[in-house]
Structure formats: C-alpha cells, structure tokens
Computed example of a mutant assay.
Amino acid sequence: MKRPAAVTMGAVLVVLRVVGGAIWLIELAVSWRSLLGEEFDGVEVDAETVNVLLLVVVVPGAVILLVELVLAWLIFLGVNWARIVVMLFATLSISVSFVTWWVGDQELHLDFTLVTLSLDILVMLALSSRAARAYARRPKPRTIRGATGSTELDGS
C-alpha cells in the first residue's frame, strides 16, 4: 500500500513540533536567569541552584522531544500505536491550552502559543484521517526465517 499524504504530513508536522519545542527550550535556557531573577519566592538562590533548576526543566524536555522524534519516524513507517500516542498527546496539549485560556491564566499569542496549538490541531486532522488509519492498520507482510534467509509472505 502506498503511503498516504496524510501520514507523511502528520510525521512532518510532528517534526515541526519537535523543532518548535527545541527552540522553546533553547530560548528558556538563554533567558533562565532573568526569568527566575535573583530571588525565588522571596528566597535568594545561588547560581548553582539556578543551574540545577534549569537542568531539571531542560533534560526531561529534551528527552520528550527525542521520544516525539522517534514517534514521528514510526508514524512515517505506519506504526498504528505511535499514531495513536501522538494523537493522544496532541489532544492533551489542545485541551490544556484551552483550559488555561478559559481560566484566564494564558493568552494565546502568535509568537509561540498559537503556532503550537495550530500544529497540534493539524497533527490531529492529518493522523485521524481515514487514509492514515487505513495505512497504519494495513496487514503487514509476514516473514519466515529459514536456513537460507527470510522470505516475505503477503498473507493473501
């Protein structure tokens, strides 16, 4: 079965989300000290504590981005569970953005929030299409390993 454009586009959009997340992490690392200021909840903090707090935020963020990159590759290959996991993450991200906006804690800005939100929506549209679902759920060829190597059987 030929890979549908929706699957390719969904994988590309996930990669764009990873690029956006990497830019956000880099921007956060650069402006970290100014964000925290000299005091943290009224308590003065030293430089080492500020750096440890930065690592506590950046390292898990980088790991999550790497996992998303692997999921994008698996989606491109047509792995159904990866498609479902990415759609779940996109749904959670869209829901969190909506709830924080509804409560009034977050404004949607064009610089970053609106871009990531629109990418999440586009990922949901691409990966939930009939073509993407059919491609991810297509029958895979079975492989038989013998003494002379492997042979593919198409299952029909």
Rank of each mutant, 00 (worst) to 15 (best):
I23C: 08
L36S: 01
I94G: 02
G37D: 09
A82D: 04
I84T: 06
R3S: 07
I121P: 02
G149K: 07
L117G: 07
F40W: 14
S34C: 00
R3W: 01
V115R: 06
T151M: 15
F89Y: 07
L127A: 05
T116F: 07
L69I: 00
T8V: 12
A11M: 06
V70A: 15
I75R: 03
G61F: 05
R137S: 15
Q106D: 04
D46I: 00
A5S: 11
V86L: 03
A62R: 02
V70W: 14
T113K: 08
F98K: 04
A132G: 04
I121S: 03
A29W: 01
L36P: 06
I84R: 05
A62N: 02
R17E: 13
L119I: 05
D105C: 01
A126N: 06
V52R: 12
G78V: 04
W102R: 08
Y135T: 05
R3Y: 00
L127E: 02
V63L: 15
D105P: 00
L114C: 00
L110S: 11
A132P: 03
G61T: 06
V7M: 03
A11H: 01
S31M: 08
A72Q: 06
R145L: 12
I75W: 00
V79M: 11
A62F: 11
S97T: 12
E152R: 12
F40K: 01
T91A: 15
L88T: 10
D120P: 00
Q106A: 12
P60N: 09
I26T: 09
V99Y: 10
A131L: 05
L13M: 08
D41F: 14
D154L: 14
G78S: 06
T143D: 02
R17T: 13
I64E: 15
T143L: 15
L53W: 11
A134R: 14
V85Q: 01
M124T: 04
T100R: 09
V43A: 10
G149I: 08
S93W: 07
T148M: 10
S34V: 07
T113V: 12
G155N: 13
A5D: 10
A72Y: 03
V96M: 13
G37C: 10
L13A: 04
